[in-house]
Amino acid sequence: MVRAWYMDDDLQSDQRLEHHRNPPVYIDLNTLFELTGVRYFKFDLRSSKMQDELNILKKDRGYSYEDEIVCSKECLPDYENKLKIFYEEHLHTDEEIRFVLEGSGYFDVRDAKDEWIRIQVEACDLIIIPAGIYHRFTLDTRNFIKAKRYFVGEPVWKPYNRPVDEMACRRLYLECLKNKFK
């Protein structure tokens, strides 16, 4: 099961570490959604029922394109610089959907108080990061993740680095946040 927690403020140590507060402050999935709009699903594709449920989710949300990405020193050209780019705080105009096939990593998202929440993902986890939320990604110390990326229509993956509060997707996200994503 996915784990989420508030992060410490240590900017000096390795971004791939867990970065728990002392004492740790964990967040359950319902609270994670209320605080950020992030959705989480678990799909063990060894089960045909789970495969069917994933296909229903993809259809219901309009995901019509998918590809795979592998992040590791061996597979990702310019690995160190790519990890730095993924870890820069940014947003997208569309949802960011990742279904982890192998490996693990962290998505960090901002809550309404502008505090970082770290979400650990591993095999069988599907996470939907809403359009307009400031976030970032990093691998964990295992340095490997293989994931499917889903898109509505043609893939658009353009990050807009903070600050871009004037963007329509950011304003819409803040309105949804204010209304608790109802």
Rank of each mutant, 00 (worst) to 15 (best):
W5L: 10
M7F: 04
D8T: 08
D8N: 15
D9T: 13
D9N: 15
Q12H: 08
S13A: 08
R16C: 14
R16W: 07
L17K: 15
L17N: 13
E18Q: 13
E18L: 10
E18A: 12
H20F: 15
H20Q: 15
H20D: 10
H20C: 10
P23C: 08
V25Q: 13
V25M: 10
Y26F: 14
L29T: 04
T31F: 00
L32R: 02
L32W: 02
F33N: 10
F33E: 04
E34K: 12
E34G: 01
L35K: 14
T36V: 00
V38R: 06
R39D: 06
R39S: 12
Y40L: 09
F41P: 03
K42N: 12
K42P: 00
L45D: 09
R46E: 14
S47T: 04
S48V: 15
S48R: 15
S48D: 11
K49H: 10
K49G: 03
K49E: 14
M50Y: 05
M50H: 12
Q51R: 15
Q51Y: 06
E53G: 04
E53T: 09
E53V: 04
L54Q: 11
I56S: 14
L57Y: 06
K58N: 09
K58C: 14
K58T: 08
K58Y: 02
K59L: 15
K59Y: 12
D60Y: 05
D60L: 12
V70A: 08
S72N: 04
E74T: 03
L76Y: 03
P77L: 06
Y79W: 15
E80R: 08
N81D: 14
K82N: 07
K84N: 13
I85V: 11
I85E: 13
F86P: 05
E88N: 13
E89Y: 03
H90F: 07
L91H: 10
L91M: 09
H92P: 05
T93K: 09
E95A: 02
E96K: 04
E96G: 05
F99E: 11
E102F: 03
E102T: 11
E102H: 12
G103W: 08
S104Y: 08
G105Q: 12
G105M: 07
F107A: 14
F107G: 11
D108K: 09
V109T: 01
A112Q: 11
D114W: 05
D114C: 02
W116V: 04
R118V: 03
I119H: 03
Q120Y: 15
Q120P: 02
Q120T: 08
E122F: 05
C124M: 11
I127H: 00
I127G: 00
I128W: 00
I128Y: 00
P130W: 02
I133M: 02
F137V: 13
T138A: 13
N143S: 13
N143Q: 14
I145S: 09
K146E: 11
A147R: 05
A147H: 09
R149K: 04
R149T: 06
Y150M: 06
Y150C: 01
Y150T: 01
G153C: 02
E154P: 03
V156E: 09
W157T: 02
K158I: 15
K158F: 05
K158N: 14
P159C: 04
Y160P: 05
M167S: 07
M167A: 11
A168E: 15
A168I: 13
C169W: 01
C169N: 00
R170P: 09
Y173W: 04
L174P: 00
C176F: 05
L177W: 03
K178F: 08
N179P: 00
N179I: 00
N179Q: 13
N179H: 07
K180H: 12
K180I: 01
